[in-house]
Structure formats: C-alpha cells, structure tokens
Nucleic acid binder design. Structure first.
Lengths: 145, 145
DNA sequence: ATTACTGCAAAAGATTTGCACTAGG
DNA sequence: CCTAGTGCAAATCTTTTGCAGTAAT
C-alpha cells in the first residue's frame, strides 16, 4: 500500500477499488497522466468506471496535497504527478510527453523560496518546455506524437 | 514600443489597437493575468472588444514564444507571463494571486537542464504554490481573494 | 485593393455537479 | 446500518473556431 492510499485512509476516506486503482496508476506511471489517460488505462479493468470518478478522486488527492498538477502540456489537459519530491519536469511541446529530470539544486531553491518569501509552500511546479531529442530529430515542422 | 510589439511586427503581423493594448497590459501588469482579466481590464477602452480576440492574440504571442503560461492558479484559467527571464512565480492557492520571486540560481539550472537533457528548451514554468503571508494571517479555513 | 484581424455566435473540450443507486466500514 | 462513493447525464466554464464585416498596409 503506497502513500496515496495511506493518505486517503488517514483522512477517513474509503478505499474503494476505483480509488486503489487510480492511486496505483498514479504511483506507478512515469508519464504524468491526465484524468483521461488514467480513465482509459483503467477502463479494461473497470468497464463501468466513470470519468467523473477519476476527476473526483484526483481532486481529493490534490486537495490533500498528495499529488501535484503540472498544468497542461500543450494538449489542453491537466497533468498529474504523484512524485512530491522537488524535481524538474520536461514537457515536449510537440509530442506532449512529460519526463522527469534530476537536479539537486532545486532542493536548496525550494528552501530559499520558503524562507525568503514568507509563503507557506505547499507544492511546486517546475516545468521546462521545449522539444525532446526525438522530436528535434524528426524535423522542425509541426507534428504530433 | 516594447518587445512584444516588436516581435509581432518582425513577424509581419499587424499592430492593431487591440493587440497594442493587450501587449501593453501584459508588459505592464505585475499580476500575471488570465485572458479574462485582460479582457475586463480593456473593456472600458474597447467596448466592443471580444474575448476571442484576446485569446487569439495571446495564442499568437505564445506560439511566437513571446509570452509564457504558468498554468492555472486554482482558478481554472491559464495565467500569462510576459517576463521571459528565468524567474520563479509564487501562486497563492487561496487568493489566486501570482507574484514574482527572484532567485539567481535558476539561471544556472536552466543551463544545466538544456545541456544535460538534450531538449531544446523554449520556456520555463517555475511555480511554487502555497499560502501567501496575507492569507496565512487571515485564518486557516477556505476563503477567496 | 488585398489580406489579415475583429467580433460575434456557436462549437468544442475539459472539468464539475446533482442525484439515485451501491457498497465500504 | 448509514454514510460516503460511484456512475450517469446534464451543466458549467474556458478556450477555439467559422464566418461576415472591417481595417491596416
């Protein structure tokens, strides 16, 4: 049982099969999925799953601070990230994929922000956008994944 | 004439009064406005201004890389930023205000990302979200601006 | 003159909500 | 049991699009 499920349980919320599955996708996926991506990924196992349930669960997790949102990746939808450790996300504006990038110094930066700003920092959204190496190689005009 | 207008002109696009006004708002505002905020700010001067025109202009500027988007600030709308220099944005999740924060080290980080990732970096979205000092002082339950 | 731009209205998408039914604890 | 959660459908809200009229060069 991962920290998402623990968080839900700690808050007294029910661990329904849908929620467990959504948390599993979030915890295991490396691709920073949108609500729609999670929905489609789970549909085979939960044929009656509702997109509304996915949204509701994601909103619960987000309001509890258990997941972060990255904003859209050029595809018009919110991308979710269950990795709360400070890290950088790289968004390709052509194929809309999102990957992680490790950079030690952002730990220090987050501390500096918290100390100097007076804000109570609840989360971060550190996204660089541009063209991934593959899309750079595949020519310079506009294509999709 | 600021760099936004110069960019539009350089691309051979027309400098209509609407576009000039929108660029002015973007260049002068410190509050990282949404399309709707720009629209309302200009409505007194342009009573027939269309929200569609605001969106179209913002999309032109964004596709030319002249403005960046920060994602939503808990208010469900995209926030725009005409400051292209690498910097940090602080979003208050309660009052939905966005302010800048200066931190030298992110210049180095952007360079590191570009070099080590193989991405062609086109922009950044460095947002910390949390509670601003004022909202922290104004109690801990949920309120809006 | 030409062609891009605006404004309007309708469309398209993503996300949210109301409600009856179901199921977890 | 008994409340919280699900699924469906409708609603809402942001953003986009088609098109006819208008204006910039």
């Amino acid at each position: 049982m991962n920290h998402l499920l623990q968080g839900l349980k700690r808050a007294g919320l029910r661990l329904t099969p849908q929620r467990v599955a959504i948390c599993k996708v979030l915890a295991e996926s490396k691709d920073h999925p949108t609500a729609m991506m999670i929905y489609h990924q789970l549909l085979p196992q939960f044929p009656t799953l509702s997109l509304a349930t996915v949204y509701k669960t994601l909103n619960v997790l987000k309001s509890m601070g258990l997941v972060h949102t990255l904003g859209d990746a050029g595809d018009g939808a919110e991308h979710f990230d269950a990795d709360l450790t400070p890290h950088i996300n790289l968004v390709c504006t052509r194929c809309h994929r999102v990957v992680d990038f490790d950079e030690e110094r952002i730990h220090e930066i987050q501390q500096a922000v918290a100390q100097r700003s007076g804000y109570e920092i609840l989360g971060a959204r550190i996204v660089y956008y541009g063209l991934c190496p593959e899309c750079r190689a595949n020519g310079s005009s506009k294509e999709s994944a």
